[in-house]
Simulated scan of single mutants.
Amino acid sequence: MSTDRIASGGAWTGDDREHNDACHERWLRVQHRPTGQHGYRDGWYDTQCGGWRYWIALSGELGQDWGVCTHSTSVFDGQVRFEHDGCEVFVVREDSSFG
């Protein structure tokens, strides 16, 4: 973790490659629902979180792959999700953007 920002009293920005890589790997094991996982629905492939109206990307480098679900009826509401995950209550973004 970048200690120079913390030592100087500034807010930590999360721009620490080693820390981010470790988070990414850990979250993939714990948070991610792989397409090969039992119970994964084929229809979810086209309704991935990164194109979800209620998915908010994290800031910094982790935001390239990770965001938070903010849809009150989703079982993932309030959880960090991988951009390629999906769920049953997917709502496409009006501008069709992804990520």
Rank of each mutant, 00 (worst) to 15 (best):
M1W: 01
T3D: 11
A7S: 15
A7L: 14
S8V: 02
S8E: 10
S8A: 15
G9K: 04
G10W: 05
H19L: 12
N20I: 04
D21V: 10
A22K: 12
A22N: 08
C23D: 00
H24A: 07
R26P: 00
W27H: 01
W27M: 06
W27G: 02
Q31A: 14
Q31I: 00
H32E: 01
P34L: 08
P34R: 04
H38F: 07
G39L: 13
Y40H: 13
D42L: 09
D42P: 00
G43T: 03
T47S: 03
Q48C: 06
C49V: 01
G51C: 09
G51F: 00
W52Y: 14
Y54G: 02
W55G: 02
I56F: 06
A57W: 00
L58R: 02
S59Y: 10
S59K: 12
E61F: 04
E61H: 07
L62V: 02
L62T: 02
D65W: 02
W66L: 00
V68C: 01
T73H: 06
F76V: 04
G78H: 13
G78Q: 09
Q79H: 15
V80Q: 04
R81G: 02
R81H: 08
F82M: 08
E83I: 15
E88H: 13
V89D: 05
V91L: 12
V92C: 13
R93D: 14
S97C: 12
G99I: 11
